[in-house]
Amino acid sequence: MQEPIVELKQVTKSYPGKLVLSSVSLAIRRGEAMLLVGGNGSGKSTLIRLIGGFTAPTSGSRQVHEARPPKIGFMPDRFPKHKFTSEEYLMHMGRIQGLPKEGLGRRIHDLHALYGLPLASQPMRSFSKGMLQKVNLMQAVLTAPDLLLLDEPLSGLDDPSVQELCGALQELKEQNVAIVISTHEPAALTGIADRIITVQNASLLEKKPEAPGPEEASIQVVCRLPGGALHPDPAAHPGLLSAVRAGGQTRLTVRADVCDQLLLQILQAGGSILEVTRRGA
């Protein structure tokens, strides 16, 4: 089995008058997507902070199993509304990482194009929740992380944005990035999860994600759509699970039972199919 990049061993975290996590152990491996589910205040966010190493455990240890500490990307809940524009903000974060100015500028433009956020001169404090979440994700993946931590990434996102985010996470997972997602709305994310862990009563309960039935198997379609559209019409495709655009191509993940319908619509819209791959059962 692959060696974990971060491992929590018998970790307890408590605050005065409240035990949040009691003697929990968890190992996170490359290319693995883990969902942390549980009610509000159950300790999901604390667990994310412990995994990231930015909160110290009350007892127990956090071990990093590589000579070089893993590069961690973090997409927090409640991303602040800065007085910077998104470009200024990402430029600052990139420069703090030590990235060269020119390559960073290109990367920021690419990320804006990828997540469909216009490069504007308006400060982020006037952004909607969905726009802020996109900048939040961009800063987390400014350079490819080894481990990506996401705290309630779907809150405030509309359906197309959720699909885009799921597509982006699927891409990162395929690049061998370990992903840990804390959410209380797991339905949209179970498609990419390898492990689902419930945080409850200061403990962790793990269950394997159910294998998809024949009707739940997904198909990935790589296509080129006319006019740079992300997908033909999301309302017409309730089976569309994710959509992400990169390099002029669009990568769609769709439920297998509605795939033919989607392919037909892409062709009728003047698009072209580049690749079709079946996933799951």
Binding site: F54, G73, M93, Q139
Partner: peptide, 14 residues
């Protein structure tokens, strides 16, 4: 600096 942003800045700076 915003509390949440402090964590992000830390992760970027190392």
């Amino acid at each position: 600096e915003d509390d949440t942003q402090q964590v992000i800045t830390f992760l970027h700076s190392g």
